[in-house]
């Protein structure tokens, strides 16, 4: 391509080395991006056995956790954590809302289990209406900038994640629970570990 090439090479000009390097690196980078994207798409949600790193959730007004308006996940070590993703526009979420609240009230006195509600892509007025309607008392907050849901790679709402005392994810419920017993079974399993 370059005009400064020696004359004797003129009739048999191959692709210059720099162009070859550009082409090959371009291809490799493109394929790498696609491969990583593909892996992400195929991963599904966070899998049981994975340690959940720290995240923090700012709670709705009127909710608090140990006197603070924010929950830091790292401070929950030593407790069994139930994280429920929900939204006010989600019909199936309403099915399980009362059961989740009942389970929470059952465990709350022991102080060994924490329930956290994360409100996914929701509008605040309707979310508050939902929380009031089902009289939900466990800490609840909006998923600001969808950071937490993106981290868990949730596939939809409702989804509930059960995390043991060591911060390791143990069980995922995709879709709603049909009764309180189901929730308590999972929590008891983790409590008895």
């Amino acid at each position: 391509m370059t005009e400064t090439l020696p004359v004797q090479e003129a009739p048999k000009r191959g692709v210059p080395l720099w162009a070859q390097i550009v082409v090959w690196t371009g291809l490799v980078v493109l394929l790498a991006v696609v491969a990583l994207g593909l892996r992400r798409a195929q991963q599904g949600t966070v899998q049981p056995g994975e340690v959940i790193p720290d995240f923090s959730l700012t709670l709705f007004d009127g909710y608090e956790f140990e006197g603070k308006e924010k929950v830091n996940f790292s401070e929950l070590r030593g407790k069994v954590v139930v994280i429920n993703f929900w939204a006010s526009w989600c019909k199936p979420c309403e099915q399980e809302a009362a059961d989740l609240e009942a389970a929470w009230r059952y465990y709350q006195p022991t102080g060994e289990v924490v329930f956290i509600g994360i409100d996914y892509v929701d509008t605040e007025p309707e979310a508050r209406g939902y929380l009031t309607k089902f009289d939900i008392t466990y800490p609840n907050g909006p998923d600001l900038a969808t950071r937490i849901s993106q981290f868990f790679r949730i596939k939809g709402v409702p989804e509930t994640y059960f995390i043991d005392r060591n911060g390791v994810l143990q069980y995922i419920q995709v879709g709603p629970f049909s009764n309180e017993t189901q929730i308590r079974q999972q929590v008891d399993k983790l409590l008895n570990q």
Binding site: L30, L31, V34, A35, L38, A41, Q42, R153, K155, G156
Partner: peptide, 27 residues
């Protein structure tokens, strides 16, 4: 392959990796 689709597509397809290899070889 679902690379571009969203949180809400449940249809996860297994053809992604095979397709990827084919594309790589073609390129």
């Amino acid at each position: 392959s679902g690379v571009l689709s969203s949180v809400h597509s449940f249809a996860q397809s297994a053809i992604g990796p095979a397709f990827f290899i084919f594309i790589g070889l073609t390129f």
